[in-house]
C-alpha cells in the first residue's frame, strides 16, 4: 500500500493522562496517545483491556474522570462542539438510521453538524460513488450485506469531512474479501491525510494498516511505537515453534524456566516461545538435535502473550 502524505509533526489527536472509572473499576488508567495526519494508530489489547473505552473518551461519547483530549489543538472540554466537528466516528455496532435510505442516512447525518457541510448533495454523491454504494442509494441500510453496511458506516462518518477518523473494530464479522475492501478504503483515507485511530481484534489488520501501535493492558499503555519495535519490546526477537509431544518437552520447559523466558504457549500440538538472539543461540546449543522452526514474531504472538498474562 503506497504512502503519499508524509507524517506532519503536529498531532491531530493528542490525549494525555486519560482515566476512567466504571464503579470502582479503573478501566482506563493514565493513557497517553497521539495520532498525526496521514497516520493510522492501531489500538490493540485483549478483551476488557480498555480499547473501546479509550476510543470513546477520545471521541467524546464518554467523559474522562481525569485527563485531556485535544483535536487539532482544540481541547475537547473547552469546545466539545468544535472538536466534534473535526472528528468522524464509526462505531463497532451499526448505528445508522433504519428509518432512512442509504442516501438519506448520509444526507441526514449532515444535519447534525454546524457549520453545515458545504454542498452536502454533491458530497453525498461522491461518497456513494467512492464507497460503491450508489446502486444501493435508495435501499434501507438493514437490507445491505455486512460489508456494505460497514462501508455505509464509514462513509457516514466522513460526510462532514473530518480530520480525525475513529474506527472501532471496523471489519468484525466481515468475510475476507469485504475486509480487504474496507482496508483499501481506510488506506485511501490515510493517504488523503486523515488521522485514523483503529481498534481491531484482527492481528493481520493491525499489522497491515497501522503505522503505529498502542498496546493496552488492564487500561494501561504497555507499549507504543512502530509495529516491529512494539513486537521486539513485548514479544522478543525470535519465536521458536516445535512439536509439543516430543520426549524432551519437560526438559525444555525447565530450561525456559531456568533461563527466565517463562512458560511456552501451547497451540494444538505445538509449543511456541519467544527468545532473544542470545537465548536462541543457547537454546540451539542445548537442544540442537531437535527439529524446530524459528520465525519472526507477529501480532498474534503478542496477543497470545497478553491474554496468557491475563489468564
Amino acid at each position: 500500500m503506497s504512502r503519499v502524505i508524509q507524517n506532519s509533526p503536529k498531532p491531530l489527536l493528542a490525549a494525555h493522562g486519560l482515566v476512567k472509572h466504571f464503579g470502582s473499576a479503573r478501566v482506563v488508567n493514565g493513557v497517553d496517545l497521539q495520532c498525526r495526519s496521514g497516520e493510522i494508530l492501531g489500538m490493540l489489547g485483549a478483551n476488557g483491556a480498555g480499547k473501546t473505552t479509550t476510543l470513546r473518551l477520545c471521541y467524546g461519547f464518554l467523559q474522562p474522570d481525569e485527563g485531556r483530549v485535544f483535536i487539532d489543538g482544540v481541547e475537547r472540554e473547552k469546545d466539545p462542539d468544535g472538536v466534534n466537528r473535526l472528528i468522524g466516528v464509526c462505531t463497532q455496532d451499526d448505528t445508522f438510521d433504519t428509518d432512512f435510505t442509504v442516501r438519506d442516512n448520509l444526507l441526514w447525518f449532515g444535519h447534525y453538524f454546524r457549520p453545515r457541510p458545504t454542498d452536502i448533495e454533491s458530497r453525498v454523491r461522491e461518497l456513494l460513488e467512492r464507497f460503491d454504494l450508489a446502486r444501493y442509494a435508495t435501499a434501507k441500510p438493514d437490507t445491505l450485506s455486512g460489508g456494505y453496511r460497514r462501508r455505509l458506516m464509514i462513509a457516514r462518518a466522513l460526510v462532514h469531512q473530518p480530520k480525525v477518523l475513529f474506527l472501532d473494530e471496523p471489519t468484525t464479522g466481515l468475510d475476507p474479501q469485504a475486509r480487504m475492501a474496507v482496508w483499501e478504503l481506510v488506506d485511501g483515507l490515510r493517504n488523503e491525510g486523515l488521522g485514523i485511530v483503529l481498534t481491531t481484534h484482527y492481528m493481520d489488520e493491525a499489522e497491515r494498516l497501522s503505522d503505529n501501535l498502542l498496546i493496552l493492558k488492564e487500561g494501561q499503555v504497555v507499549s507504543v511505537g512502530a509495529p516491529r519495535t512494539v513486537l521486539g519490546d513485548l514479544v522478543g526477537e525470535h519465536v521458536v515453534v516445535l512439536d509439543a509431544k516430543i520426549p524432551e518437552a519437560e526438559m525444555i520447559e525447565s530450561w525456559l524456566d531456568k533461563e527466565g523466558f517463562g512458560e511456552p504457549t501451547r497451540i494444538l500440538n505445538t509449543w511456541q516461545f519467544a527468545l532473544d538472539g542470545a537465548g536462541l543461540a543457547r537454546f540451539s546449543a542445548t537442544f540442537g538435535q531437535l527439529r524446530f522452526e524459528v520465525r519472526p514474531p507477529n501480532l498474534d504472538d503478542l496477543f497470545l502473550q497478553l491474554t496468557d498474562d491475563d489468564s
Partner: peptide, 14 residues
C-alpha cells in the same frame, strides 16, 4: 433497538 441515539451521539449532538 434502532440505535438511532448512538448514531446521533457520534456527532455534535449530546
Amino acid at each position: 433497538y434502532q440505535k438511532t441515539w448512538d448514531g446521533q451521539l457520534t456527532t455534535q449532538v449530546r
